[in-house]
């Protein structure tokens, strides 16, 4: 990835600073005390990873319930090595582990509802990184001398370098929108009140959106049109989300 493109990516540390949460592909705020991201159910790979995590966490909780089960069975008339005793032990430990898992999932679901806006903004950050990834691929193809491979209009290859500069500008604006959106969400989440900085951030997003629209209209017909459109869509989503938050 070229340095100018790399500089546009929002790093994990930056995302943590902006959101105040530890953001991962499956969970926000880590497994312990965090919430799962609703977008994990949109892809099979992430859904499977989430299910696997649930299974491992269940087994971990089950392991922690062993001494409790053992101490409860101490005075039991059924020895823990006889079948009835074993079943009793497993009922106690598995039951406790199951209850912990249900409580944990309910907690995540309830907390996730309160963080809906943050989750949507984080999905937009993912989309933004996907766009950056797509441009990195375009760059690689251009570097090996196949600029037309991914072009819809082959005769536009000569203008690709100039377009790239404008696409990067559009991405920079999108990045600013996302950063402003995440900051606004954090401020509102933390204070739940009106703050002077909020209006400033929203105004910044609106200005960026107007510029993005202008770039998008100018390049609708060329190969970067889709990327610009994607950037614009992300910007609009961020704007909508912030508008909703401020109402």
């Amino acid at each position: 990835m070229r340095p100018d493109l790399k500089a546009l990516a929002i790093t994990e540390k930056e995302l943590e600073r902006l959101t105040g949460c530890d953001v991962g592909p499956l969970f926000v705020g880590g497994i312990l005390g965090g919430v799962y991201r609703p977008s994990i159910f949109q892809t099979l790979q992430r859904s499977l990873a989430f299910c696997l995590t649930e299974v491992v966490v269940f087994l971990l909780v089950f392991a922690f319930t062993l001494p409790i089960g053992l101490s409860l069975m101490r005075d039991s008339s059924n020895g823990v090595n006889q079948v009835p005793g074993m079943l009793q032990f497993l009922t106690v430990t598995l039951g406790m582990a199951l209850m912990v898992m249900i409580a944990w999932n309910v907690y995540m679901w309830l907390r996730g509802k309160r963080l809906r806006s943050l989750m949507q903004l984080l999905d937009e950050v993912d989309r933004y990184h996907a766009v950056i990834g797509a441009i990195a691929v375009l760059d690689q193809l251009e570097a090996v001398g196949h600029p037309q491979t991914v072009l819809s209009d082959a005769n536009l290859s000569q203008t690709s370098l100039q377009n790239r500069t404008e696409v990067l500008e559009a991405l920079r604006l999108t990045r600013d929108n996302l950063v402003a959106g995440l900051m606004t969400e954090k401020i509102l989440r933390d204070s739940r009140g009106l703050l002077a900085r909020r209006q400033e951030l929203i105004a910044g997003i609106e200005t960026n959106l107007v510029t993005l629209r202008a770039i998008e209209v100018k390049h609708q017909a060329n190969e970067y049109g889709q990327v610009l459109n994607e950037a614009l869509q992300i910007g609009i989503k961020v704007h909508q989300e912030i508008q909703q938050l401020s109402n």
């Binding site: 540390k13 943590e16 530890d22 969970f27 880590g30 965090g34 995590t53 491992v56 087994l59 392991a63």
Partner: peptide, 20 residues
């Protein structure tokens, strides 16, 4: 104290898997 929660979760789950 950078990403402590993630580290705790990851280390706990990984060590659980390795021990298991």
């Amino acid at each position: 104290s950078v990403k402590l929660k993630s580290k705790i979760s990851a280390l706990m789950l990984c060590s659980f898997c390795f021990f298991a």
